[in-house]
Design a protein around this nucleic acid. Structure first.
Lengths: 233, 233
DNA sequence: AAGTGGTCTAGACCACGCC
DNA sequence: GCGTGGTCTAGACCACTTC
């Protein structure tokens, strides 16, 4: 109906999708088990499993052992954002990338990071501020707290040739973290950096990463005014 | 090292991850084929395939037939955002949900939507504005253009009991679309709605959806000042 | 042409979670 | 308990790319 299905588990997913969309199976309904569907479609159970697993990943059905598979009542929209290395992002726009280290100093754990960073009393972090440029225009302002106990080599870098952002991505594996997306009004400093009026709305991302239970880094990336982050769904 | 691996393809993924993280395989390197790895790990090729497919999904390796699997040089950060139905979002915060239809009128295709909506000259759309409340506090302001030719039933709704947002999610399947995340300064009207000062930074999402090549709807959701959208990575 | 990943099969065992 | 999804296997054919 919408697109051509090559030949495989995607065709089965398409048929299941059709039944969900056309209300053959209503939201909340229990749908047949994998064995039954496999028989109906004349394929192996593995293939049905692949199709159902994909639908579950996109949130359209919920699956539980013994309980079976149900059509989701409120299918959430899911969007996968790909946040590239800043250098790659800039160069993909056909611009020349450049960065400059603005600040670099030891700092105590800021109070507002207490929740994210479980560190001993008075633990010191390396604080760095970096401006990333696209064709000499400020593109992203990066404020970062890094736990040098977890990443000793980080403390010895000068970040002339490579930015803190790039170095960490290439050298520090992480096991998990969280990200926050929000809007903020540019303060005096930020406005001066971006050559705009104070109060201008800017898009920002905060990211905290851990390796196991060891905190690695907390960073806020503030994007140039007017930046729009896109994705396909 | 970081977490316990149950027993399965995740253990293999963990071992492959270790080799990537510890530079046993350098960025850009060609890693062994599935058959070799299966032999090394003493498992079926399917299992190795599952592990490698997962690493490819997260962007850590790139795979091509005949060419093989390579360690990615600039592994991008990927984050999956789950945008829930507004009602569910509000109720998950323990608040009472309510919505109000503010505006509803026929409008011609706005010029700035020309790129997203491929419609005939002078085509009319149904424009709706809806305010979504959490405990009687304005939470999200929704501005929506809907193509009633694609979704005829939409034009007959009064959106008293159910919001346009909720109705569309429950009744209109889509095959694809795009989303944009950005920050904006609240204008006079928006500031009045949110009971804040004009110029306050607000987080917003624009979403356009199609069914095949037929445009369905374009919506801008503007969130209450201070809203932060979170996700785990 | 040949190698590599992509997929499918038929069968099996396991683990979670309702009852 | 026991039913359902989660996973694994061994083998096979196919499709895409590079050579």
């Amino acid at each position: 109906m919408t697109a051509k299905e090559a030949n495989s588990w995607t065709r089965i997913r398409g048929e299941l999708l059709r039944r969900i969309n056309e209300r053959v199976w209503q939201p909340g309904d229990l749908i047949p088990g994998e064995v039954d569907l496999a028989e109906e479609f004349g394929c192996a159970r593995t293939t049905v499993n692949r199709a159902l697993r994909d639908l579950a990943d996109s949130g359209l059905v919920t699956r539980k052992r013994k309980a079976g598979t149900r059509v989701a009542v409120n299918p959430p929209h899911k969007a996968t954002l790909t946040i590239p290395i800043i250098r790659a992002d800039v160069e993909a726009r056909g611009c020349v990338y450049r960065h400059a280290l603005v600040t670099r100093e030891e700092r105590y754990l800021p109070h507002h990071l207490g929740g994210a960073f479980r560190l001993p009393e008075g633990a010191q972090l390396l604080y760095t501020e970096t401006m990333h440029y696209a064709d000499d225009r400020p593109f992203i302002f990066e404020e970062r707290y890094t736990n040098v106990d977890t990443v000793p080599a980080f403390g010895t870098m000068d970040f002339e040739d490579i930015s803190a952002n790039e170095w960490l991505v290439q050298n520090t594996p992480y096991s998990g973290g969280d990200m926050v997306f929000f809007a903020a009004n540019a303060d005096e400093t930020l406005a001066r950096y971006f050559d705009t009026a104070p109060g201008t709305a800017v898009f920002a991302i905060e990211r905290t990463t851990w390796d196991g239970s060891d905190p690695i880094t907390h960073v806020r990336m503030t994007y140039t005014p007017g930046y729009r982050m896109r994705t396909q769904i």
